[in-house]
């Protein structure tokens, strides 16, 4: 399994182990109840201190559910989330609240990530009120410092969110996350709504925060080219499972899973001479869980066994940490043995 690749004695900063969460679909009007579908189905990985771990997947892959389940909002059905060795799913709500300042989240939508009727100062001071209520006189200074750290001017403090540009709002959201001194930030599509000119600077800022403050990031995005810029290691998700994972260079340089390949080929590169392929059929969003591989219905390299055999985790030869869940590689290995 993926998480066993760590051989260091101390536990990794964040360890996610066989996380599952399913949602009940609403009963239909005419009794055509659908069974609950698994948004997350046994997801495991770990993030080391100061590491940027990228999670990439299309809509419906479960990546946002993953972000929320890690924060226990909502709590997962099964599996553990361990932060510095401590199992969050076992904590009561009070202990969990205390544990949270180590684990922060930043969201995509700059429009709704800040409370619309509260000033930037009020928003920034809120985590401090929660975690360091005694330090109240220092709040203005701390907020100013946090804004500086994300490259913003302190004169923004008395403003309301709607008076800021979307890039500024995302920076404030990041400032709010770092102000309590977290060891890891879950960044859920934080640059997706930004223009490229602003996005690039936001990505620089994230790399800088990692470098200078040693903050680890779980960086979630649908955009492979963004992930490729910042992530040390990546996991590709498809319908609630990690289908491929490994160092970013290995996954993007030698993609193994047909889905990863299709994703990479479908990225429109600005260079018109970079090949581009639109071969993958659109997802029909069939929630029915077939016994075999969940990518089988769209896979260009599907063969008979894929329909009824679920692929297991296979380690690839190019890199010891490069894993894939695909029968193509299992059979290849069996044949060679």
């Amino acid at each position: 399994m993926n998480q066993k690749s760590h051989t260091r004695p101390e536990p990794p900063l964040l360890e996610v182990c066989k996380l599952s969460r399913s949602f009940k679909t609403r009963p239909g009007w005419f009794g055509n109840d659908e069974p609950g579908f698994a948004a997350l189905d046994g997801v495991s990985f770990s993030v080391a201190e100061g590491e940027i771990f990228g999670i990439v997947g299309e809509s419906g892959s479960g990546k946002s559910t993953l972000a929320r389940c890690i924060l226990q909002l909502p709590r997962p059905d099964h599996g553990q989330v361990r932060l510095e060795g401590r199992d969050l799913s076992g904590l009561g709500s009070r202990q969990l609240r205390q544990a949270r300042h180590k684990l922060q989240i930043v969201f995509q939508d700059s429009g709704s990530s800040l409370s619309p009727r509260r000033t930037i100062f009020q928003s920034l001071a809120e985590p401090l009120e929660q975690f360091e209520p005694g330090a109240r006189p220092e709040f203005p200074q701390r907020c100013r410092l946090a804004l500086e750290q994300v490259g913003l001017d302190a004169e923004l403090l008395p403003r309301l969110p709607h008076q800021l540009s979307s890039g500024q709002k995302q920076r404030v959201a990041l400032a709010r996350a770092i102000i309590a001194g977290p060891s890891i930030i879950v960044a859920d599509e934080v640059v997706s709504s930004l223009d490229v000119s602003v996005q690039a600077r936001m990505l620089e800022l994230i790399s800088e925060l990692r470098r200078e403050k040693g903050i680890a990031f779980l960086f979630i995005s649908h955009d492979l080219s963004v992930i490729a810029q910042v992530a040390d290691r990546v996991a590709v998700m498809y319908r609630g499972r990690i289908v491929e994972s490994g160092p970013a260079k290995a996954v993007f340089g030698k993609p193994a899973h047909p889905y990863t390949r299709a994703l990479l080929e479908a990225i429109p590169d600005p260079d018109p001479d970079v090949p581009f392929n639109a071969s993958l059929a659109p997802d029909i969003q069939n929630r029915q869980q077939a016994p075999g591989c969940r990518f089988a219905t769209r896979c260009p390299r599907v063969f008979r066994a894929c329909l009824d055999t679920a692929p297991g985790d296979t380690r690839l030869e190019d890199h010891p940490e490069h894993h894939v869940e695909c029968l193509l590689y299992e059979t290849a290995r069996e044949n060679s043995q």
Binding site: V196, S197, V198, Q199, A200, R201, M202, L203, E204, D223, L224, S225, V226, A228, Q229, F252, G253, L264, I267, D269, P270, D271, P272
Partner: peptide, 29 residues
């Protein structure tokens, strides 16, 4: 235009696009 952008804005915009496998990181404006 991609090979030889004439307007500085176009050129900077092209340089800001993140790309898989690019040698240089994207540069913001």
């Amino acid at each position: 235009l991609f090979r030889h952008a004439r307007h500085p804005y176009t050129s900077k915009l092209l340089a800001a696009v993140p790309r898989v496998g690019a040698e240089q990181p994207p540069r913001g404006i």
